[in-house]
Amino acid sequence: MVNPLQGKVALITGSGRGIGKATALRLASDGCDIVVNFFRRRDAAEQTAEEIRALGVRAEVVKANVGDPAKIEEMFQFVGEKFGYLDIFISNAASGVGRPVFDIDAKAWDWTMNINARALLLGAQQARPLMTGRGGKIVSISSLGSQFVWPTYTAVGVSKAALEALTRYLSIEMIPDGVSVNAVSASAVNTEALQFYIKEGYVKDMNATTPVGRMVTPEDVAEAVAFLCSEQAYMIRGQTIIVDGGTSVSLYPPVIEKGEA
C-alpha cells in the first residue's frame, strides 16, 4: 500500500518526548517527512529524529521556544529553507506553572498562555504561506483541563480553553487556504509531564479511574491526530476530539465494569 503521507512535511512542536514524539513517529510511519522541534532537551529531539529516519523518511531538528514570537518565525523560516513547504502543523508543545489560583502571578500566566495558546496563533500565521494550496492540516493538542478542574492546573487549563476556541476560529478563517484545523484533547496521558503531577500527589492511579481500564497513551493521542491529518477527516473542522477512554462522560468511573486493559 502506498504511504498516504509520502512526500508531505509535518512540523510538530515539542516532539522530542511524549505525545509530540508519538505523533511524529505515527506520521512518519505513513511516509511523512518530519521537522522535530524542541526547547530544552536536544538529546531527546535527536533521538526522536533518529527513530524517524529509521522509518525511511527525512527528519530535521529545530530548537525554538514557542513562547517567543521571534523564535516561532525562525522555526518556520527553517522549515521553508529545508523543505520549501509544509503540509501538517501540530501545535503540541506545552508548558505550565502548577499553582493554585491565588499563587499565579503575571509572569506564570504569561509564560503558560504564550507557550500553550499564543503559539498556535502565531504558528498558524507563519504556516499559512507554506501550506496554501496543499490541503494542509493543523492540529492542536489540548487537554481535559480546558473543561474540568484539576488541582493546580488553572493556568494550563485556561490556556487549553483558549487553544480550543482559537482552533474553532482558525478552522473557519483557513477554509479559503484549503487548511483543516482541529484539536485533540486528552485526559491524563502517560508521559514525563504527568510524572510531575504524580510526584506532587495530584494524580494517583489513572488506570483504575479510566473506564476502559487503562490510561491514555501518547500513541492513542497520535492515532487521533493522524486521522485528523487524513483526507477521511475532510469534513471535520474546528472540532476538539476527546481521547480519554471514557473519563469525561463518566461521573463515577470506579463503579463501571472495566473493559479489556
Binding site: R40, R41, R42, K63, N65, K107, A108, W111
Partner: peptide, 19 residues
C-alpha cells in the same frame, strides 16, 4: 520557571545552548 527563564536569557545573551 525562574530557572528556565534564567537559562534561556543566558542562552540568548551568548548565543549558546544549555540543555
Amino acid at each position: 520557571l525562574d530557572i528556565v527563564q534564567a537559562l534561556v536569557a543566558v542562552e540568548e545573551k551568548y548565543d549558546i545552548e544549555i540543555p
